[in-house]
Design a protein around this nucleic acid. Structure first.
Lengths: 203, 203
DNA sequence: TGTACATCAGTGAACGCGCGTTCACTGATGTAC
DNA sequence: TGTACATCAGTGAACGCGCGTTCACTGATGTAC
């Protein structure tokens, strides 16, 4: 009654759920999430179509779990690693450099984030906005550090602009391919520089 | 031989093709382009499913025509109207203000642009990038005007940043709804101000 | 300890349905002479 | 002018196929006593 299932059984269950999530990310990067079917995903995850229902009610529920788990981890890692590896380019520069590293590490998941953030499914947009709030806080802190201000005094529209530029850089990196991402570092650093220079003149 | 079809017949043909494009924009805004089927679009355009083939080979061909025609017109209008209505906020400010007007006028088409620009269909991304090149030129000219420089001396990464901020504002406007878009004017103007202030300090 | 029962993930068969596509046909319009 | 022929957009019937979903069953594991 305390333990309902054996640890091995629980692990197996999580392994399959995780396989469904990863299969979805891969297929969505190729044809778009909204074109995916339950059977297609189940096939890619090597389970029977009917087994899908043991894990998710439908594709939308799977997508929301995907955002909660995979996207959540990605964003948390992004902010945390940038905090740990601050360089000469400042705290915001570290977030930009980390962005390119994350795109290289998991381009398919980044495609999902960028696409669904502005896609047609409202529940996904809302869930992603919530998860990207972690990035928002990280950017806000970075701006406060780089501008030598308190986080509270950094205007929201400035944070908003910085987040938009970081995500646009991720989009560029996806488009250019892994070989040519190093060439994107200098432009995004220049953008960060201009943003900070302009903001330091604001009241 | 010179005239193969009567003008009325040609108009009717274009009317149906246009109905297919508009139906697609509306449905894509609701469920995402990649989830759309040929029959669903034909139904919304009030033609028989088989008649679809008289106009487009498949949904991808329809999408590319949609970008070429509808998106092309929207972007051209955007830049042209901003050029005509420059205000106290400068040339880039006029592009920002016009962005909000365009979102209000055709939110469904703007959703299509924002979603497919970063979506999973590579041919759509490429076609949209090409069409948005018109906006790119407009932004480049605006920056040159506002910074009192020659267009050639405006660095590409600065144009890139400005375009990204404009499109992000369009995304915000879609999310907020038509009632609350006026509240977005001040933030985007502040972003434009910071960008110009920072850029004017660049070498 | 053994025995009976409960839980639950995975599955194959089966269903009705909408899909993309092919085909032959209609009817309006244009062309030839 | 009339007549015969060509072109072409639109359509209904029909096809095979994959979809989402329901259901009953299996077998492994946990629980009660």
């Amino acid at each position: 009654m305390v333990l309902r299932v054996k640890p091995e059984k629980k692990e197996e269950r999580e392994r399959i759920a995780s396989a469904l999530l990863r299969a979805t990310v891969g297929l969505a990067a190729a044809h778009g999430f909204s074109s995916l079917g339950l059977r297609e995903v189940a096939r890619a995850a090597d389970i029977a179509p009917t087994s899908f229902y043991r894990h998710f009610a439908d594709m939308e529920a799977l997508g929301l779990t995907l955002i909660e788990d995979l996207v959540g981890d990605l964003v948390e890692d992004w902010v945390e690693r940038a905090r740990e590896n601050r360089t000469a380019h400042g705290a915001l520069g570290a977030l930009a450099r980390e962005a390119l590293a994350i795109v290289s590490a998991d381009p398919e998941l980044m495609r999902f984030i960028l696409a669904e953030r502005v896609g047609a499914i409202a529940s996904f947009r809302a869930a992603l906005r919530k998860k990207l709030g972690i990035l928002w806080v990280g950017v806000s802190d970075a701006l406060a550090t780089d501008l030598s201000r308190t986080p509270a005094s950094v205007p929201p529209w400035l944070v908003h602009a910085a987040v938009a530029l970081l995500l646009e850089t991720c989009s560029d990196a996806l488009e250019e391919g892994p070989d040519r991402t190093p060439a994107l570092i200098e432009p995004v650093m220049a953008q960060v520089r201009v943003l900070l220079a302009g903001a330091s003149q604001e009241p």
